[in-house]
Amino acid sequence: MKLFLIVTLFIYSVNADEYLSYEVEPFTDEIVNGINALNTTWKAGKNFNGSSVQIDTLVPTHEKLWSYPRDFPIRKYGSCKLPVNFDARVAWPNCTSIGKIYDQTKGYPSWIYTAVGTIADRLCTKHGVQIDVKATVEHMVKTNVDFKNYYNSANIGQALKYWAKNGIFTVESVKESSCLPLSQKCQSNEIKLDKYFKVTNEVLKYESEVMKSIKLYGPVSAYMEVYADFLSYVSGVYKRYSENYVGYHNIKIIGWGTENGVDYLLATNSWGTEWGEEGFFKLKRNAQQLGFGTNPISTSLMPVDNEKDIPRSYVHGQLFYLAK
């Protein structure tokens, strides 16, 4: 028995750059022990308060995401001095949406908190507009975007393209809305239109551009390839060591820094506060940890004041509810 333990630890620790086997499954003691035996930049453990969570509620899109929006233009910024550490929560303390952690395991689509959250963040940092992300998500979910719906994917680009084509409205909730389905307009006494915004999206090809975009305008949304070990992340700077691919996911990058000499990007997840560092995680920089060809997206919003340029109709998917 003692010899078996020695051999097992040797297999795990012989080379910290080797990957764990494809056969090592998520949520198991084997993957937790394997990562921790590597003595790497992060720790693995039991998340979700020990409760059983289905992978499909966390990462519903298992195929490679060939529909990634590659037609977005590439954004390049000019010279911009970047600090060693940056946290958008600190830079914009009044924009509370930046640091909120939500829980998609309750039955919401995997893209929705990242897409709505990033729009909310940038409406606040640029225009001082506070959005109730929870209320906005719940109203969108009511419009047939349910847990098992086609839209329960990891393709935030689909939502961002829609908003780029149709724009968004900020609205005030006058009373509980009952206007369903998606194609039906709300009654005028249920919501009050506030402002209309045009939306533009650009991809950020290089990490330095991601950091500049966050510093200048706020958090960015991103695709991320998820492997089995990420599900057991509890602290530190994550670097992938699993070969067991489980699917695509969407996250929000809100800053960066250095921990124990390791550079990282700071991100929020949407798996609740019982995962990772109370819902947050650090992702090793300069290591393609998001996956290959999965560039983060910078979204800009421009208010439209000319009435003739404002659409005369709208659907739930365009409505962002103002915080009360």
Rank of each mutant, 00 (worst) to 15 (best):
V53P: 04
V53N: 02
V53W: 08
Q54Y: 11
Q54F: 09
Q54D: 15
Q54R: 10
I55R: 01
I55Q: 06
I55N: 01
I55E: 09
D56N: 13
D56G: 00
T57F: 03
T57Y: 01
T57C: 02
L58M: 10
L58C: 05
L58F: 10
V59G: 04
V59L: 05
V59N: 05
V59S: 03
V59Q: 06
V59E: 09
P60I: 09
P60E: 06
P60G: 04
P60V: 08
P60R: 05
P60H: 09
H62R: 14
H62F: 09
H62N: 06
E63S: 09
E63M: 00
E63T: 00
E63H: 09
K64Q: 12
K64G: 07
L65E: 13
L65K: 02
L65R: 07
W66P: 00
W66Q: 06
W66L: 11
S67W: 12
S67I: 08
S67N: 14
P69V: 07
P69H: 08
P69W: 12
P69K: 05
P69L: 05
R70V: 11
R70L: 12
R70W: 14
D71H: 15
D71G: 01
D71V: 05
D71S: 13
D71Q: 13
F72N: 02
F72W: 13
F72S: 01
F72D: 07
F72V: 03
F72Y: 15
F72P: 07
P73M: 02
P73I: 03
I74S: 13
I74V: 15
I74M: 06
I74P: 02
I74Y: 08
I74L: 06
R75Q: 13
R75P: 01
R75W: 04
K76D: 10
K76H: 14
K76I: 10
K76S: 12
K76V: 14
Y77K: 00
Y77P: 00
Y77F: 15
Y77W: 09
S79T: 15
S79Q: 14
S79C: 02
S79V: 13
C80S: 04
K81N: 13
L82S: 06
L82D: 09
P83W: 03
P83Q: 02
P83G: 01
P83T: 00
V84Q: 12
V84D: 14
N85Q: 08
N85H: 14
N85D: 07
